[in-house]
C-alpha cells in the first residue's frame, strides 16, 4: 500500500531522533544544528521555489470565471468576486480563497444511479476539516512563538488564551490540539475510504500527514502525559537561543522533545520540495489571481511569437477567379485573359 512506506519513514525518523538524542553530545545535533539547517532550507528553498515560478511569465490572462462578467449593460449584475474586473475585486476573490477556501465550499459529491441518473449533493466535509486542520496548524504555530519570543508579545498571549479558553484539565487543554488531530484523522481517513482518493493518492500525500500527525502527537504527549524532563524553562531558553543565535542546552531534555523537534525540522526541510508549496502557489495561480478584464485591458505576452496569418493577398491569389465570378470584391482584378 502506498501509505506503508511513508509510515515506515516517519517511524524511522522518530527512531533516529530517539536513539540519536540519547547519545551523549548528539543533543546539540538534534537541538541546534538540524533545526538551523531545517529553517534555512525552508526559507531559502521556499523563496527559491517562488522565484523559479516567477521566472516564467503568465503569457495569457486565463482567470476561471465562476460568475457573471462585467457588462456595460447596466441591468446585468456583475459577480465581482467570481468574475473580478479589477485588482481590488481580484484581491477580494483571492482573500476569500486563501482565508476561507471558497472553492472547496462548492464541493459536491456525484453518484450514478440506474437510469442512468447522475446526482450531485453538496459535500462540505472536505472544506470543514480542511479549514479546521489549516487553522489549527496556524494557531499551533503562533502558540509556539511563546517559546521563541522573550518577552512574549500580547497577540501571542491572546491567541494562547483563546486556544485554552475551555480551561479543561491541567496543564490546560488547547482546542487546537484536538482539532488538528481531528483534521488529520479526517484527511487521512478520506484518503483511505473514498475510492477515488485512495486510487489517486501517492506516497507523498501520506507522508506529510503522518509527519504532522507525529509532530502533533509528540507535542501532546510532552504536554500532557510524559512531562518528566520536559523542562519548559530549559526548552524556552534553547528556543530563544536559537532565535538569537546563542543556543544553549542547559538541562537534560527528554527524547520526546528531540523527536518533536526533529520531525518539525524534517517538515520544514521537506516543505519546499513538496506539494506543501501550495502555501505559496495558491497566491500565484493564474486562474484565480487575474482579473477577467482581457477585453478591456491588453495583457502582454513577453514571448509573443512573430506569426503572421496566411495573408489575404495569397488567399485572394488562390481564389481570385472564383471571387470575381461570384461578385465578391477583390483587391486586384483578374489579369486580362490571354487570348
Amino acid at each position: 500500500m502506498k501509505y506503508t512506506f511513508p509510515l515506515a519513514a516517519v517511524i524511522a525518523l522518530v527512531l533516529i531522533a530517539w536513539i540519536g538524542s540519547n547519545i551523549p553530545g548528539m543533543q546539540y545535533l538534534f537541538g541546534i544544528v538540524i533545526p538551523y539547517l531545517a529553517i534555512a532550507t525552508f526559507i531559502i528553498g521556499f523563496c527559491y521555489r517562488v522565484v523559479q515560478w516567477a521566472k516564467s511569465p503568465v503569457p495569457f490572462r486565463i482567470p476561471t470565471t465562476c460568475g457573471q462578467q462585467y457588462s456595460p449593460l447596466p441591468w446585468i449584475k456583475q459577480n465581482k468576486l467570481e468574475a473580478p474586473a479589477n485588482t481590488s475585486q481580484v484581491v477580494a476573490r483571492m482573500f476569500l480563497e486563501v482565508v476561507l477556501f471558497r472553492s472547496l465550499w462548492r464541493h459536491t459529491k456525484a453518484e450514478i444511479h440506474d437510469g442512468p441518473k447522475l446526482t450531485y449533493e453538496s459535500s462540505k466535509w472536505l472544506w470543514l476539516f480542511g479549514l479546521m486542520f489549516h487553522y489549527s496548524f496556524l494557531v499551533v504555530v503562533f502558540r509556539h512563538m511563546r517559546l521563541f519570543l522573550d518577552p512574549v508579545p500580547w497577540f501571542i498571549q491572546v491567541i494562547e488564551f483563546g486556544d485554552g479558553i475551555l480551561q479543561i484539565g491541567s496543564p490546560g487543554m488547547y482546542i487546537t490540539d484536538a482539532t488538528i488531530i481531528l483534521g488529520l484523522v479526517f484527511l487521512f481517513g478520506r484518503r483511505l475510504i473514498t475510492r477515488n482518493l485512495r486510487y489517486l493518492s501517492l506516497a507523498n500525500d501520506y507522508f506529510p500527514l503522518f509527519l504532522i500527525f507525529g509532530i502533533a502527537v509528540t507535542g501532546i504527549m510532552m504536554r500532557f502525559y510524559f512531562r518528566t524532563d520536559v523542562d519548559i524553562v530549559a526548552i524556552k531558553r534553547l528556543a530563544v537561543g536559537l532565535a538569537t543565535f546563542q543556543p544553549v542546552i542547559q538541562a537534560e531534555i527528554s527524547s520526546l522533545f528531540y523527536i518533536h523537534l526533529f520531525l518539525v525540522s524534517v517538515l520544514l526541510a521537506y516543505f519546499p520540495y513538496s506539494k506543501l508549496m501550495h502555501m505559496g502557489g495558491v497566491f500565484l495561480s493564474p486562474t484565480r489571481n487575474l482579473a477577467n478584464d482581457s477585453r478591456m485591458r491588453r495583457h502582454i505576452n513577453p514571448w509573443n511569437p512573430d506569426i503572421k496569418p496566411h495573408s489575404y493577398a495569397s488567399y485572394e491569389d488562390e481564389f481570385r477567379e472564383f471571387m470575381v465570378e461570384n461578385d465578391i470584391p477583390v483587391e486586384k482584378e483578374l489579369p486580362p485573359k490571354a487570348e
Binding site: 529553517i39 525552508f42 526559507i43 512563538m145 521563541f148 519570543l149 522573550d150 508579545p153 531558553r237 530563544v240 537561543g241 532565535a243 538569537t244 543565535f245 546563542q246 544553549v248
Partner: peptide, 12 residues
C-alpha cells in the same frame, strides 16, 4: 518567518 530573530534583538 524570522520574526523571532528581529523581535528578540539578539538577546537571549
Amino acid at each position: 518567518i524570522t520574526f523571532p530573530i528581529w523581535y528578540n534583538h539578539g538577546d537571549a
